[in-house]
Design a protein around this nucleic acid. Sequence first.
DNA 1: TACACAATTTACCTATTGGTACACTAGTAG
DNA 2: CTACTAGTGTACCAATAGGTAAATTGTGTA
Lengths: 185, 185
Amino acid sequence: MAKTVAERADIVPVLAEIFREHGYEGASLATIGDRTGLGKGSLYHFFPGGKEEMAAAVLAEIDAWFEANIYRPLREATEPRAAVEAMCHSVTEYFHSGRRVCLVGAFALDNVRDRFANCIKDYFADWQESLAQALLRSGRNADDAADLAEESVSSIQGALVLARALGDASVFERAMDRIERRLLA
Amino acid sequence: MAKTVAERADIVPVLAEIFREHGYEGASLATIGDRTGLGKGSLYHFFPGGKEEMAAAVLAEIDAWFEANIYRPLREATEPRAAVEAMCHSVTEYFHSGRRVCLVGAFALDNVRDRFANCIKDYFADWQESLAQALLRSGRNADDAADLAEESVSSIQGALVLARALGDASVFERAMDRIERRLLA
DNA sequence: TACACAATTTACCTATTGGTACACTAGTAG
DNA sequence: CTACTAGTGTACCAATAGGTAAATTGTGTA
């Protein structure tokens, strides 16, 4: 009998992909069980809070990833312009050039927004603030930096929506080019 | 016994609001029954295809509204710059300054995207094309017009996501100002 | 006045939902 | 060798899901 012991850390990325594909309501425990290869027993062992805790864990991991790979580099870069450039490339890679949905953005439009309002808000607020900080240190004034950061974060989300709606990844790539050009101008 | 006869045309806007609030999967027939004040019998009388037909009807009505109020004016305007300006105002009003979600955008991020792929695609393609046409006739070259139109449509969606995520309508208003300025530059 | 038909109510159906209870297995520490 | 524990599998649960069937109501028209 295969006992193949699992770990929480291995499950969360799978959960993330499931929520991305099906949304919160659309991701049933049956689907989750199939895709993770875990029975309900194991699932509720790792996530006693059920689906809600699973989604929270996914959001926490996403936040940790962005903190480590996007926000902190932007905040702490000695070379802010290079950090901005690096952000653009990381983002393009992370979202598979627009073929991958932003789970936080999707949750924001869904009715689960209320349940995870804080996570969702922080995700975008942190992004905007860290980017604004890098722009500030690259020589812009505070107002321009804040405005440009807000526009960029917003545009990335819009490009993800449009790319997916049109089924055309090039929409996202064009948007990222525009954003990078404008950030470095 | 109150018989209060209903009409399909009266129901669709209510359905639209329900789908906006709860998403496709999240909008149960129970909720729909409550909010419309109609039993399942009436609902299936008007929409024999069930939930899917209800959503399709909503998307069709949205498309018709945009065709009449946004796309056609852009395409047929004798004064294209004024039409672009009018579009910006209509859009701001339609989305309640970012407090109201774009159902088509939300569906695009959801897993129901596949089911309504054509509607969703057309909505954005038509918007982009009609806007590009107005820009073209306002004196821009074809490439600039197409690019700027794509960027604008994309930015509107992004602004809706971000405004809702942050619970801050001013994000949307700033975005619309930027877009209008750039379109009329 | 009676017919036809649109609209509605009510009752019912099966599958699935998220969640619980609990017995069980396999390592591991003493 | 034994006791403990993290992880697993199975069976079960009430509630709800979307959907169906048919009897009933009212209303405009001939």
